[in-house]
Write a protein that binds this DNA or RNA. Structure first.
Lengths: 213, 213
DNA sequence: CGTATTCTCAAACGATCGTTTGATTCCATC
DNA sequence: GATGGAATCAAACGATCGTTTGAGAATACG
């Protein structure tokens, strides 16, 4: 009866990803998810254990690859004298743009990421921080090297704001339809350029503490 | 039994604002709201008619003043030869920063606004577009004047991305605690400066269509 | 003061939520 | 082809959801 080439688990993850992106984690019910995936309602608890575990798995499936790509890109520029702030930002942003370019739900996942930033759910934030906090930490080290005048605390909260704002901006690229005839690839690359300059300007501002005292 | 100096309606609106900010519209139940407001459960439907109407009223209460301030600030710079892009962005951003500075739940509302950007709820988007779309439209007119090389469509979607990203960034200011001894006012003004330069850089990029063809 | 209106309250409504159950089907292995 | 674990299924669980009800308290007005 399984007409799809994908397994039950994969179909659930894909449907959950799409529905979480548009309705949020609380707003999308397991009945909606299982109906969209064309599986039985009980399949979610059978394969994942609970709705919260399903949410975590939606993240894990994409974030593992996304973050290893980010760290690989970071490793190519970290510690070098010629590295500019824009290069580090590119290492963070480009992998997400690549992800959203792949047809298989990647664009939806970027919107799920934006949802996660909006959610102040403590369980979800702890899961993300525990499992993927080391990525942000490694980027922070490199940003600190390139922005020696900023205190570590300030690096962290600027990064949080910047990445949140960028994540939202990237999420919306998945929705807006190109009306011109530029290729999707060109469109995304131009957009990444906007975002990188955007973020660099915010990060490069003089340190708040010394300027204000 | 009403020990608070605020009316039942106001207490509901305040509690709803805070809970929608942290748990989202679907995630915050009317039972949580009425418990926090210390009113009876039925009071919501008595005073507002439904949960959706309550959500709309949470927006209306703040957006009316926020948008009239935005339009007043815009009117002071619109059409003048000396106006820079940064001035128009300041007219959009500063009123929101002012709102978040006022103690009475304004910071929570900015986070509710960020929620609204994350929500793709059609009903909510239509309500906001119907009632407050003219504000964005007037700003778009002025941006179009200052960015004559950009097509109108492109102005609109860049503005949507930019305002979404800025709204998220502003929302997080309410959470991050200042550790230095700068005044709250100075902190916000510096932050606004970051955001304005941020947004100006994104908007000023060369038009995508001509560059890509 | 008596009446009318507004408001508040506890209780219940049907619907939907996440989750669990127990039977049934599928499929690999011997 | 029989056996046993994995997977799927319809059905139901208790909890919680938004909403409604009808009676009672508070308030305004003649």
């Amino acid at each position: 009866m399984n007409a799809s080439p994908f397994s039950t688990k994969e179909r659930i993850l894909g449907a959950a990803e799409a529905l979480f992106a548009t309705h949020g984690f609380a707003g999308a019910s397991l009945r909606q998810v299982t109906a969209a995936a064309k599986v039985n309602l009980a399949a979610v608890n059978y394969h994942f254990g609970s709705k919260d575990k399903l949410i975590e798995e939606v993240f894990r499936r994409r974030l593992d690859e996304l973050n290893s790509r980010r760290l690989a890109a970071l490793a190519r520029v970290a510690g070098q004298a010629s590295t500019r702030l824009e290069d580090v930002l590119d290492a963070y942003i480009s992998p997400a743009l690549d992800l959203s370019r792949h047809g298989g739900g990647g664009a939806a996942f970027v919107r799920v990421l934006a949802r996660a930033y909006a959610e102040h759910n403590e369980t979800l934030r702890r899961f993300l921080s525990d499992n993927y906090g080391h990525v942000l930490r490694q980027f922070a080290v490199e940003f600190a090297r390139l922005l020696p005048d900023l205190a570590k605390d300030e690096i962290y909260w600027r990064l949080d704001i910047v990445t949140g704002a960028l994540t939202y901006a990237m999420a919306d690229f998945g929705i807006i339809q190109r009306k011109t005839e530029v290729t999707e690839r060109t469109h995304r690359e131009q957009a990444a350029g906007h975002l990188i300059r955007f973020a660099a300007a915010g990060l490069r501002n003089p340190p708040l503490s010394t300027a204000a005292r």
